[in-house]
Design a protein around this nucleic acid. Sequence first.
RNA 1: GUCGACGUUGCGUAAUGGUUAGCGCGUCAACUCUUACCAAGUUGGAAGUGCGGGUUCGAUUCCCGUCGUCGACCCCA
Length: 864
Amino acid sequence: MTELPSSFTPSDIEGALYDAWLKAGYFTANPHSDKKPFTIVIPPPNVTGSLHIGHALDMTIQDSLIRMKRMKGFEALWLPGMDHAGIATQNVVERQLAAQGKSRHDLGREEFVKKVWEWKAESGGAILNQMKRLGASVDWTRERFTMDEGLSKAVLTIFKNLYDKGLIYRAERIINWCPRCLTALSDIEVEHQEIDGEFVQITYGDAGENQISIATTRPETMLGDGAVAVNPNDPRYRDMIGKTVRLPYVDRMIPIIADEIVDPEFGTGAVKVTAAHDPNDFEMAVRHNVPFVVIMNEEGVMAGTGTQFDGMDRFTARKAVVEQLRADGRIGWEKRPYKHSVGHCQRCSTIVEPRLSKQWFVKVAPLAQAAGDAVRNGKVKIDPVEMEPRYFDWVDNMHDWCISRQLWWGHRIPVWYGPNDEMVVVGPGESAPAGYTQDSDVLDTWFSSGLWPFSTLGWPEQTADLKKFYPTSVLVTGYDILFFWVARMMIMGLFAMDGVEPFGVIALHGLVRDKHGKKMSKSRGNTVDPLEFMDKYGSDALRFTLARGANPGTDQALAEEWVAGSRNFATKLWNASRFAMMNGAHVNGALPEPQTLNHIDQWILNRLNETITEVDSNLEAFEFQKACDAVYHFAWDDVCDWYLELTKDVFARGGAEAEATKRVLGHVFDQLLRLLHPIMPFITEALWKPLTHGESLVVAQWPVATPLHNAESVAGLVGDLQTLITEIRRFRNDQGIKTSAKIAARISGLTEGGLSAYESSVRFITKLEPATETFNPSAKVEIGRFVVEFDLTGAIDVGAERARLTKDLATIEKDKKTAEVKLNNENFMAKAPMEVVKEIRERLDFCNAEIERITALLASLPKA
RNA sequence: GUCGACGUUGCGUAAUGGUUAGCGCGUCAACUCUUACCAAGUUGGAAGUGCGGGUUCGAUUCCCGUCGUCGACCCCA
């Protein structure tokens, strides 16, 4: 009945199955259906990106949820897309131009942007095809890009709305400036790194005038100083407050001011105030009316100081300034190297220059308040809850958000300036008055990706999609971007959608680390390529490995061996299904009434039900590891190792019992494959179709548990059967009897134990022949109420048997002692709960019985 | 600097105030047998709660300290 090849080759089936799914339109959501919606928007990967193992994990989780919900009858929408990644993308294209000896300025803005679109068409979005390899059941008909027309309109709309409400403003501030990318950066685009710098004491003022020593790590910025600050309570400097001191080289008199923020213990206790090149100094300058002196151009080159240092790069100038100071005897102590942490551009690692400039900002306080409240009042749940403090930490302490970028690739700020400094914000469909020119900057990419959960559904239009699928059900992402992106979506979603949250649950997972729990990085050389793993072991194996390692909010380790292990699981599943089908497993007609089935069939149905419950509840709770473990052990241990082995004897005997078992076997595999489908979509589909002749697992119904009445007694009976078989196997193993060797044995106690019907199965599995007339029992194993006597005709290894029994005895005696100590402890007896005391008493009784039994067995062994 | 997390067999992890601390990979041993599975499989085995103190009848679990690892945030010029 089946043509399944004898081994499983993932690459033979994956591509074809995915194409068939697409062709059938299974992933396309219908906004007009009566089904309840279940929506996930993909955290949009970068248009320049390619699939790394973190994406693979993120997508595996999302796909598993979506596929399960789809099977449960939800109108499931998983919406894919990408963001335009302003700086990263612009850098890629600029690098290409640089290779031809050109810069973007040679092309001009319009041509350059055209070039970027061309690049996107040619090489952007490689990751989308890689998602297909993974089996992602996303709705490709709804693929979105943050620079699309619709999403751009959303950006304009929200900009205007925020501006009109006074939540966007333009101001001159100190911002993080990258002198290489020539753009402003937000706080989160700056990475702090420890570097070896210098810390130098410098004396200001000439002999005969006021003099004061400051200390700095950035000597070159002295040229832009507007004041020197001291602590008002510092006795060393109290008399100097209010006086002025001469700043060398620029020959400017600057005041000595007093500010509490100055730490008398640090450095010299006197701080230079460079208002235009340091955020703290900026604050102080505002408090004390210190002038802002800009001493560098946008490329970080000294300019406008009127000194010999003009034209030098900031780091060259640093050396030159120190040399000059030293020559002039103004240097006191010098600490070099001086380790301190300095901000670097996330994209190009250039040291960030704090720079005074006019930028656009979002006033986040009221918005962040709402974003925090949505979680505080339970509208949005963060899973796991332990991650909540991190979220609050962030949203409750957010600085205003600098959203303008001096780039060409991105959404251009919709503000136009008139000839006399007039300013208008131009919304969608509006146009600027004649003679106005548009702001040349673009918006931060996060500004548009913050709109993702609703801009992708058509907002600001009131589309059917928006009505059906917003708010989205769950957002799945790594905890590492909880603040970067999630907080921004909360802010934007609550604002744009009148307080309706963008998602109900934020399900956070961890990072994928290497086998030893170390962070993967190119410099460490411990990165892994998900595509390579898919090639070698199949997508299902990679998905299963990732899902099986995923505990909410915690990092997971990954090693190639684990992926190979999952591949082995897939192979096992393949062969077990082949076995089932070869033996006539089917799903035709109703499942027989459980009470008409043999105990083994009843037992496996019950284990199936338990597994369904476990998998279902754990998937719903994002407990992927537990769900995977449950289905893995059911499939391998219960089904393959026990059930299939036990059916062999049933099939060999044939008859009505075998016919019933074929139906049960079909049902078990049918349901097992459904359960596993969200996590391993390909192999399950490939097996399920020939087994059931159904249309597709993608649209098959999710299993529902139907517990049996006598589950417990059946479980007890099969448990006894398993113990009996295991003990016989162990005996055979201890005795060094070959697996294939058949030996004669007499089994007693089966009738009393309720297992008389299974003697044939036991003998089949353990290769025991019935006792004949010449049977000569030479060894005995007691297993509870069962006794197995073997005819080994002198072949018994008494030493091995004695060693084993002695060891068992020691273990049980230790247990007995533990129990006795407790029971003899007056405090324990007085204070421990009754159930616990009862348990310990029963334990003691059990130990005594075991000791008696083992002792007797030892005594019965022939002397060595 | 501030805050946080974590320390369970060789490695990665799970659970738990009270029977015998579970699982995967690895490892050791034996086997590969009639109806599935040899880049595999079967069977059996060995091996673990960092250290010190406290609370408790009882701590791997709760508390404190310590050591170690990792992370986040911030920054003092």
